[in-house]
Amino acid sequence: MSATYTTKKILVKRSYQILALILIVLAGGLLLIPKHPKHEGISPELFAKNILSTERYIASDQLADRMINEDPVLLLVDTRESEEFRNFTLPDAINIPLSEIFSDELNPYLNQDIYDIILFSNDNFTAEQAWMLSTRMGYQRLYILDGGLNNWFATIIQPELPKETMSQEAFELYSFRKAAGKYFGVANDTLEIEVKPVKKAPVKKVITKPKKKKRMPEGGC
């Protein structure tokens, strides 16, 4: 082995070492990159897009229709406090108060992909807050009963009679709402009053027979 060959070998070895050193330094530099802030749920941009969309609302008529047809994927969720829930709720609804939407016991109802969940409260407000927090977490298939129970009562339970000048559709909608109301336990609200027949004083019939005229005796002389 010549001397030049050995120096060459050493040089090559050293260059390896330098290369390795550079790579190690660069890899270490990756650690210095500011941490990507991680947060639960979806990104703010997607969240902003979701809250702008009105697809989350379901009209009371639409819901009534689905309930009457016994839609198997429908799950009603009452977001009010349990006291109000006990007082009145929609048929087959379950109670998940807003404060408990992330509790271990009730959260699985919201965090699923089997049912169409209809959230409702007295108005839109509480249901909407529950919807927003659940949407932020990325839960799917969540809807809000538009107008809440107030609107439910104004449309299904106590629908307003359309004016005579209104369109045919308005009357059809009204009759649908009346029929739906009956399904949800509203009896006919037009009370029928007992009618007593007016007694007529029996009129005495007087049959007058025409008097027979005196027959003149026939025959001549």
Binding site: F88, N150, A154, Q158, D189
Partner: peptide, 17 residues
């Protein structure tokens, strides 16, 4: 916010007559 416009339970009770 969150106010019930009618008393639901009693309204339902009444309409059940």
């Amino acid at each position: 916010i969150g106010k019930a416009k009618v008393n639901y339970a009693s309204t339902m009770e009444k309409s059940k007559i």
